[in-house]
Nucleic acid binder design. Sequence first.
DNA 1: TGATGTGAAATGATTCACAGCA
DNA 2: TGCTGTGAATCATTTCACATCA
Lengths: 210, 210
Amino acid sequence: MSNHVPNTTVQRLPVYLRCLVQEQSLRVPVANSVRIAEMAGTNAAQVRKDLSYLGEYGIRGIGYDVDGLVRHLTRWLGLEHVRKAAIVGYGRLGSALLGYGGFQDRGFSLAAVFDTDPEKIGTAAGSGLVVEPLADFAAAVERDALEIVVLTVPASVAQAVTDTVVAAGIKAILNFAPTKLLVPADVAVRQADVAAELQILSFHLSSGGE
Amino acid sequence: MSNHVPNTTVQRLPVYLRCLVQEQSLRVPVANSVRIAEMAGTNAAQVRKDLSYLGEYGIRGIGYDVDGLVRHLTRWLGLEHVRKAAIVGYGRLGSALLGYGGFQDRGFSLAAVFDTDPEKIGTAAGSGLVVEPLADFAAAVERDALEIVVLTVPASVAQAVTDTVVAAGIKAILNFAPTKLLVPADVAVRQADVAAELQILSFHLSSGGE
DNA sequence: TGATGTGAAATGATTCACAGCA
DNA sequence: TGCTGTGAATCATTTCACATCA
């Protein structure tokens, strides 16, 4: 057991979990590192090293017990209980994410939606949710035990909205706005900039595909 | 001038470009590595090293000419001409991305939309586009000079759809489906798995925020 | 003078190769 | 036997520190 898992490893854990859950649904009882690697798109040594940071969960000569490893990964990722997330910014992307049914399966529930536009506040947002004013955010964090904010507001207001949700005690933000957020050191931010991803692809197109 | 730019550097180039375009809009003529670093959320040595892989674009004692560097980054990212992308999968996420106006500014035009659902084919999809059958994809690649596919289909059909678009000559795919895509070595794929991002945030929440 | 550009050093990640164990 | 777990080696990236030059 170790107390430091490298960042690169952390980013692969959700992939491993997804692959193992798939094996589980196929009733495969055991998976070895070669199998996990080919499903996850990496190599066997990487899989073994990554998993060894978490503990000794494999069986020599056999592989990894799928159910057991799913349980361990779920625990390491903090997904034993469903985490509540809030959509902040009820635009097209916010409503698309709300409508996407794939989060429940993977440990998350979108439990509230916020906006500042008076036109939007009070409207029904699917899943029985109603768009609430951002001014009520802090109260809602208490009420719904919100832990994660999915930020789908325009870049121009992203920092101000971030300051509001951080003041309300939020420690994890998935930011779809194309802007760097300044947050205290104990707040985790992941950037999800779709246009930047396209630009990276464009680079690869330009450099002859190698 | 170099002929190999590290992957980690490539991933930061869009961030630098975004920051410099912002400086441009503020009529700032010159930016030094310290300034770029604080906007981009990195450090000055990193900025200088990254930019030095592309060439010698700075002026010693002064910094980087903003307009000039914007031009160079645009060229390195292959963004001198607008790249045409297709949305494949006209569900909630596909339609949200189509409705998002922020791509044009950053070098992309969403030029076509495809689906296999007969209910959706033929319906208007905003921006004057009509949802086309995936069977017509290869013809549309020719017609519209499509270069990039944004894949917003369910995971269960993602590989089959990928095989179709790759057969039509597509070399760059942004995959929103939570599944590994098998593609030939000359096809670039970027993964955009929102639930995986949330799981990474969950890990950070669990490990006490350090 | 005050910045860049860059070798060299330090750090971090991946891969190798094999000991150790079911 | 056939796999995992893991030190050691390799490779990649980041950071340092300073020569260089407008």
